[in-house]
Amino acid sequence: MPTTESPAVSAVPVEAVKAVRRFNRFFTRQAGVLEPYLGGALPLTEVRVLYELAHRDALVATDLARELGLDGGYLSRILKRFETEGWIVRSPSPRDARQSLLTLTEAGHAAFAPLQQKSREEAAALLAPLPPREREQVVEAMGWIERLLDPTAPRAPTRTVVLRDPKPGDMGWVVQQHGELYAREYGWNSEFEALVAEIVAQYIRKFQPEWEKGWIAELDGERVGAIFVVRKSATTAQLRLLLLTPAARGLGLGSRLTDECIAFARAKGYRKMVLWTNSCLSAARAIYAKRGFELEKTEAYEGFGQQLVGETWSLKL
């Protein structure tokens, strides 16, 4: 039976259609979609579902199915399998008693972490042979494709987020920003800036590139955040100096920086990650708790011109 095309579809030149199909074949081959995805046992769709659960809060199955374009029954079978594996838990939705909120468990995060790391490595390997300007052109082109083909995408200028290695001058900025932000937002005095300067100096002098790493976050070319992993012992990594300027808040950058640290520590074979924070830093504490960090110890103390409660958190890797 002949098919009837809409006028809009029939108006697309044949060569343009061939170009789209050719690009689809090219990119699926480059991205390794035709092979076992990321070298693991999970198919692409299940990895994508895990990704959404790892990066989104308060998801319900109907929203997940709609946003991923999945059949409800198919998604239900995937979620049942995840539940059997102990990767997700369900809790009643406060908005609709007929719906359940889906939350990734610590085991779920542990299952997803190596897949996320492998995905990052494959994407980096794809871009690595290109000179810096050509990499930028590829990323810009992909952004244009997204914006032009997705009618729901915002037309405002895209904000570019980059996580990169620290370079000369960055560490002084880290000290300065800690001093300014904590004085303005929490009333801490210069003792805190001195502490950060000592931590930074020790990190630079004793840096072990095989076991330690730092990230500087840029937003539209401006520094807006930082985080570091240091080697505390042969089996324990320490997360240090998570920082976000006000311009970067609400974009999920704190979560992204923390995820980078956890993935790095797991890839290096650390068995535990620890961190020290203060009870008043609620946003950072929420990020740590969501990723499975557990509060091990609290201690009241006087420091930085304030009465504070220090906290030690840890995560089994």
Rank of each mutant, 00 (worst) to 15 (best):
F112T: 01
Q117W: 01
Q99A: 15
A124K: 10
L115I: 12
E121S: 13
G108P: 04
L104P: 00
A110W: 05
L126V: 07
A128Y: 00
H109Q: 12
P94W: 06
D96K: 13
Q117S: 09
P94L: 02
L115C: 05
F112N: 03
A128E: 08
R98I: 01
H109E: 11
A125N: 13
L104Y: 01
L104F: 05
A97Y: 08
A113Y: 05
Q117A: 14
P92E: 12
L115Q: 07
R120E: 09
A111Q: 11
G108T: 00
A113R: 11
P92I: 05
A124V: 07
L115G: 09
E106A: 08
R95E: 10
A124M: 10
D96C: 04
A107N: 13
E121M: 09
A123G: 11
L115A: 09
A107S: 12
E106S: 15
D96W: 05
P94V: 01
R98Q: 12
F112G: 02
R120W: 07
F112L: 11
P114G: 06
R95L: 15
Q116W: 13
Q99Y: 00
K118D: 01
L104R: 07
L126Y: 09
T103K: 13
P92W: 06
F112D: 00
P94G: 02
S91F: 03
E106G: 13
P94D: 00
H109F: 15
R98D: 13
D96S: 08
A97N: 10
L127R: 08
E122L: 14
A128K: 04
T103W: 01
R95K: 08
P92K: 09
A107C: 10
S100P: 03
A97H: 11
L104M: 14
L126H: 04
L104Q: 00
Q99I: 00
L115N: 07
A125P: 04
E122V: 04
S100H: 14
S100I: 01
S119K: 12
A97M: 12
A111R: 15
D96N: 15
T105K: 08
S100C: 04
L101D: 03
T103C: 04
Q117E: 14
E121K: 12
A125S: 14
E121I: 04
P94E: 00
K118V: 07
S91R: 15
P92C: 06
S100D: 15
H109M: 14
R95M: 01
A124Y: 11
A124W: 13
T105P: 07
S100R: 15
L102M: 03
S93I: 05
L101H: 09
L115S: 07
A125G: 15
A123D: 09
S93M: 03
E106P: 04
E106T: 11
E121G: 01
R95G: 07
R120L: 14
S91Q: 12
L101V: 11
A125I: 02
S100G: 03
R120D: 11
P114H: 12
A113F: 04
L126Q: 12
S100F: 02
A123K: 08
